[in-house]
Amino acid sequence: MFLLNDRLEFPPVSHANSEGLLAVGGDLSPERLLLAYRSGIFPWFNDDDLILWWSPNPRMVLFPERIKISKSMSKVLRNQRFRLTVNTCFKEVIENCSRVERKGQDGTWITKNMHKAYLALHEMGFAKSYEVWEGTKLVGGLYGIDLGHVFCGESMFSLVSNASKFAFIHLAENLEKENYELIDCQIYTEHLESLGAEEMFRDDFLKILKREI
């Protein structure tokens, strides 16, 4: 495990341990966060911990053209129950992502400093959100880092059934139209697998990540 200082650098991701933990410390400046995402690294830690930086192997990814849409979700997409917007209320999306309860998790990893860091990236045009509305109420959404050819998904929330799936499906469809290579989903979950995400060796993921940077 590597201890970071004020220098803007990370060790090679090949030094990450079996769980994917690579380094500890540093800061959440926009420059360091962008360097991390462009290097296949992301922060994930609790509010009272040092900043932990991860680069797991394998990596969970979704190729946009391989999104899986179930019959029930196809009906949801057709019935116009939900309305989608992009980048209209980023702050509200990240706040909801930090509050939503998740199975197997005690509290949230989206700390106050995380809020500030990703809002700064949003103002710079790198952090983006997809919002799902039911009438005038925000009921779901997601946010992540847009690298231009890879979208690094960070978190999503759903206050009503299928709202986050609605956002994720539209994200995949929009990125496919714009010829993005993939969506970085970071780590495996059954939910992501059900939507078409798959595991990829880290070296193969890095080749795609660095192809156009």
Rank of each mutant, 00 (worst) to 15 (best):
L171N: 12
R32F: 09
I208E: 00
L50Q: 13
D184R: 14
L171A: 13
R102T: 07
F2W: 11
L192G: 08
S161H: 14
T88W: 03
F126Y: 15
L171K: 11
F2I: 04
Y118A: 06
F205M: 11
L84H: 08
G148E: 04
I51D: 08
K71P: 02
W44E: 03
A127C: 14
D47V: 11
W54Q: 13
E19L: 12
S158R: 10
A167N: 06
S158W: 06
H170V: 10
L182S: 02
L50I: 01
M124I: 10
S14A: 15
I51P: 06
G140R: 07
S14M: 13
Q80D: 14
E131T: 00
G104Q: 02
T136K: 13
M124L: 15
L3E: 11
K177I: 08
A167V: 06
V100K: 09
L84Q: 08
E9L: 13
M1F: 10
F63A: 06
G140D: 09
L8F: 11
L77I: 02
L147W: 02
E131G: 00
N46G: 11
I94H: 13
I145K: 05
E199L: 15
R66W: 05
L159I: 05
T136Q: 12
F205R: 05
E134W: 07
S129L: 04
E31P: 07
S70N: 10
N46Q: 15
D184T: 06
F201L: 15
N162T: 11
G144Y: 14
S18M: 10
L28S: 01
Y130P: 05
W133V: 05
R78C: 02
F42N: 05
I145A: 04
P12Q: 07
K75H: 01
G20I: 10
S74T: 12
I94W: 15
K137V: 15
A16H: 12
V100P: 02
H15A: 10
V76D: 06
S55I: 07
W109C: 09
R81W: 07
E198F: 12
G125A: 05
S29K: 09
A117Q: 02
F166L: 02
P64L: 02
V150Q: 07
K103H: 10
N174E: 15
P30G: 09
P11R: 13
V160Y: 05
S161V: 14
M200N: 05
W133N: 04
L22K: 13
R102E: 02
F42W: 12
L121A: 00
F205K: 07
L33K: 08
A120R: 10
E92Y: 00
G144V: 10
G25Y: 05
L142P: 02
S55W: 07
Y180R: 02
D203T: 10
E199W: 02
P30E: 05
E190R: 14
V100W: 09
L34Q: 09
K103L: 12
A197L: 01
N162K: 11
V61W: 04
L209R: 00
S194W: 01
M73C: 08
A167M: 11
E190F: 06
F168K: 04
A127K: 10
L142I: 14
T108S: 15
L119F: 12
T88F: 02
L35I: 04
K68D: 01
N113I: 01
F82I: 13
F166V: 03
L206Y: 07
V24E: 11
I110M: 00
K91F: 13
L21P: 00
I51S: 04
D27Y: 01
F205E: 06
V160G: 07
S29E: 09
R202W: 08
Y118P: 06
V93A: 06
F151K: 02
